[in-house]
Design a protein around this nucleic acid. Sequence first.
DNA 1: CTAGGGATAGGC
DNA 2: GCCTATCCCTAG
Length: 453
Amino acid sequence: MARERKSDVAAACRKLMKEETAGERLVRVWIWEYVLKFSSDVRLIRELMDCLALPNDVPRLKQMVLLKELSGQIGRGLVLQKTLDLLEGMREVMCDARRVADLGALVEDEVRQERKRVKGPTDGTRIAGAESDCGVAGGNGVDGGQEKDWDDLVDLITEVREEVQDEPEVESSVARKRKYKEVENKLKTFIAKAWIELGPVFLEKVEVAVVSGLYKGVTGNHLETVLSKGKAAATAVDEEALADKVVEEVANKEVVEVRAADLEKGRQGLQESVAQLEKLVKDPLPAVLERTDANGGNVSTQVPASTSGREERTAARSTRRNFLDPHPSARSHEWGDDEIAESPPTDSPSASRRVRLPPLNSAPRMSPLVEIQTANQPRGATSRGNRRRRKNHKWSEEEVETLKREVGKYGKGRWKLILQKNYDVFQDRTEVHLKDKWRNMEKYEGIREDDLD
DNA sequence: CTAGGGATAGGC
DNA sequence: GCCTATCCCTAG
């Protein structure tokens, strides 16, 4: 039943997205920005994904997703190679962001043209705040500080990883553990800084502005005027500056005293904004939340990390790849390939109807890392370079024994589970590594699952 | 996520 | 070269 409703929602959303205007697309970006920044509820994010495609051509959003994934790495235990891959993804996106520094202007342009086309009958589709750049272009400031942090971090991880590869047998040494801790801390700092770099998201600014009474809202007339006069860009700067100022003030002042009247005012303002948003995009959240509540907070796609039952695993299997868990062996990130790729839930039929922005990556497909490395790193300091095959990492006795034991316990084919239960032993391995190793052992050593106790 | 095909590294 | 171990890719 939940399943049917789910597909209903998804279908309805697809339909909506088919007719998505440039303005609505912006709304989609705002929603995602906000959710990615403030929700740590993976379940919610997945559900939302089914209903509202994650725009895959906005560097800022990509950065946010990558940051989420990196955070997840810390939570689940570091897999150095994966961390490096994610970091490389970050670098790519950061470069993209720089390349399209004026994307905001382009979007506004699209909005303007779109408005010209649909002018008249569709009075109800006023685009709240569409003349502001709304953060699509915001956060493009990838400055040198972040690059340096990035370099340091990658160097450190590479170094540790190589150490692990060269002397896998001392994996549990105190020094090794300290190294991992160091990586983790540095990574945390990097992530925190990156979020700061990204700056406030659009809805956040609106929220702050409304609550502090400085945001007067945008009237339809105002919008029309702005758009028709073609002064969108100029206004966007003003609004942006205002919002920034507000955020800054709020951040710097001792806690701003908020009186009841202000709060009420703010709440009303937010309610209006929400109503406007709902007019534009059918907000999937209420349905999702209602469903999760009805379900006692449980949704079938949720996988409690600690469980291991076979049934649960099957139940948890999703038709779609978990976006927080990219393909284990993927060496490059899927986003930004030249095609205008669809996000998973939005199946292709609607693709052609989408408002399209210029491809972000029309530039060479080669990893920006290459340029950077060759430029900044004299010797092969970071040996992984472009897409180099990782150095063969011989299996230690302990790893092999653990693998045998665990296959005996959980059965062949539960690679992910086995890995999760033994992150400390299988440092720097993925489930694919476990699977491959077992295959070899079967093939060349004649080991069988049933030989094990 | 897993299975299986295939590429590559590295030892002899 | 051949063979095994390891790594990588991708269909299902």
